[in-house]
Design a protein around this nucleic acid. Structure first.
Lengths: 358, 358
DNA sequence: AATTTCTTTGGGAGCGCTCTCATAAGCCAT
DNA sequence: ATGGCTTATGAGAGCGCTCCCAAAGAAATT
């Protein structure tokens, strides 16, 4: 509790600083009796090693950062990020690491945060949410000396470490399902169009249509930005064109879009069917349950941390890649026959669903 | 970028380490010419001071922690926390501080995180979300030597620094409004009943009823835990007792409860009126807009950081208190005449709504 | 019994900064 | 010029750890 240092413990135990250090760091080369004696004194005095001193001497801070650029500023509007953060935090706990959160709000923040990230002695590594193509922060950080893992496919993939879900085939399976169900006028509400996420999901959409020999009506593609209101607005534009099914690139936008449909007095899925993306917990508690692509958000965060720590410990060459799978969850909004399956997003933190690494 | 140190810069500039240090730390006592020369070299070399070394020497890390105990594990289920986190992160940026996030998932995390928080040289101070009465983490941390500000009224207030909103009068105004509107069978859905937040809101409920000379029917009070599903379940229990109005202690629970009402084929507010608490952005985009108590969540986070930093710099004696105001926002779910007012929760981060401190 | 090998411990040199104090220089008034 | 004052710079002693290396025993080998 108080201001004891290693040296004080050493004196109390009648050993050297080195020995106490060994005990604190669980080094094997300490006699059993000595270890016990030192441990007891540490216990009694409530000694805690000073983190800064330890970092300075060991060149390790045991901290990693999670950076959300401002181009992704839909940040806490979309439950995606909280879930991700939860996964990251969970994994950090398992690895005895501390998580630092950098939410970039504006240009000023960006200038101020960048050096903090690049500074040595601060972070052992960091996770960077992939943003838009014109993201300057991204460009500045990408050449960082400290290990960096990008969340989501970056624009410039060359020798960048990243982790992502397979957005293309995920979107493809969603749209194929709609086609299989017989919908004729299938529309799409995109995410922020300069994000790779949105681009990949659109690619999946196009692939599914092409494979089915369908023409794409470009007027049935409306632009959103992953937010609820953008989904609502996009749907308002689409409604006069009478689409019979919509692939929304996120659940939150699907919810906004469905709000627009209901306001117009139309039925879901009777008049307009929906498939979303994310499988947020809310998808299964909506009045009309949302058919959507399940992506393991929390798990994604955990994997990201695991990979980053691996990079920190074993180096970043060759560049690391990891692509996680998704799964189409069929519920009520797509019409056809409904197969129910509870979402497990929220439950992941609990109990034994997630085994800790040994 | 590379591994330059203060000394290298000094050598390059032909000055002493001390002078470079002064330049880096914007100390006034440096000659203009010298400053310029040193700054240029720092610029060119891309030098960044080592954070660990600086922390060790200065006894300041410029990091603060945000700790969410596991008893509050509804964590990212409820948008409350993301909004709070956003405010905290925003304020940290303004103060050039780094935010560390501690999400306590389970007992093991708790044991592991506690020493990290208490350790010197790690955090300059931290924010601790108030949890349940039986929260051990809380008890262990409360006597911390490092400055600590509790978010929400703690159980044991004595000499504890905390910040809260005025839950009692907020709840009171919500319930009074329902009474004024003429509802006769007013029920309540509580939050986690061992949290001070829930206790205070219940007190407000009771005060409003008492002032109006109303009896309280205890069967019309159902227990929730701030989650959507708990609101739904609570309402299921309440429905057979035919309440005509419900005060839900959080918006999310109100949403769950309204789901139950609609499933039962009843009208809102015709059959059951609602008042929520929080004024999340979603409250104003629901099909039937939610009447609720606005609490400035993001702003709350900002104020908390400001206060904590003040404590770090000026000491914690006497114990600090801060209580923020709330406002009843009347929309559609309470019946009576609706006054619309857009929620500004999400907008707070943008533009000039929030002035940075000079 | 002598030699080698391991295990346990201590000593000391950093890690890269900050900060106090001493010194040197510049400035003004007398 | 001379003393007193302010301002700019440098030297050096830490901050509290880690980690390499050497030393001293103990144990094992010959």
């Amino acid at each position: 509790m108080n201001d004891l240092k290693l040296e004080d413990i050493a004196k109390l135990a009648g050993v050297s600083r080195s020995t106490v250090s060994r005990v604190v760091n669980a080094s094997p080369n300490v006699g059993a009796a000595t270890r016990k004696r030192v441990e007891k004194i540490i216990q009694n005095t409530g000694y805690h090693p000073n983190a800064a001193a330890r970092s300075l001497a060991s060149q390790r801070t045991n901290m990693i950062g999670l950076v959300i650029p401002r181009t992704t500023s839909a940040f806490f509007t979309d439950p995606y990020f909280p879930h991700l953060t939860q996964g990251v935090a969970f994994a950090c706990n398992n690895h005895h690491m501390t998580l630092s959160l950098f939410l970039v709000g504006n240009q000023e923040d960006e200038n101020e945060i960048t050096p903090r990230l690049l500074r040595r002695g601060m972070l052992d590594g960091f996770l960077l949410q992939s943003g838009n193509s014109d993201d300057m922060l991204f460009k500045r950080l990408i050449s960082s000396q400290v290990p960096l893992l990008v969340l989501g496919r970056p624009f410039e993939e060359k020798s960048v470490n990243y982790i992502d879900v397979d957005n293309i085939s995920a979107a493809k399976s969603a749209v194929s399902h709609l086609i299989k169900l017989g919908y004729q006028r299938i529309g799409m509400i995109t995410g922020a169009i300069r994000s790779t996420t949105s681009i990949d999901r659109e690619t999946g959409f196009r692939q599914a249509m092409a494979e089915a020999g369908r023409e794409i009506d470009p007027t049935l593609i409306a632009e959103g930005d992953f937010s609820e209101s953008s989904g609502y607005l996009a749907m308002k534009k689409l409604l006069p064109l009478r689409p019979d099914a919509i692939f929304a690139q996120s659940d939150v936008m699907a919810i906004g879009a469905m709000r627009a449909v209901q306001e117009a007095g139309l039925q879901i899925p009777g008049d307009v069917a929906f498939v979303g993306f994310d499988d947020l917990p809310i998808a299964s508690t909506l009045p009309i349950k949302l058919t959507t692509v399940h992506q393991p958000i929390t798990h994604f965060g955990i994997k990201a941390v695991d990979l980053l720590i691996d990079m920190i410990e074993k180096g970043t060459k060759p560049a690391k890649r990891m692509i996680l799978d998704t799964e189409l969850i069929i519920r009520d909004t797509c019409g056809g026959k409904s197969v129910n399956r509870p979402t497990d997003q929220g439950a992941e933190m609990e109990g034994s669903a997630l085994k800790k690494p040994a």
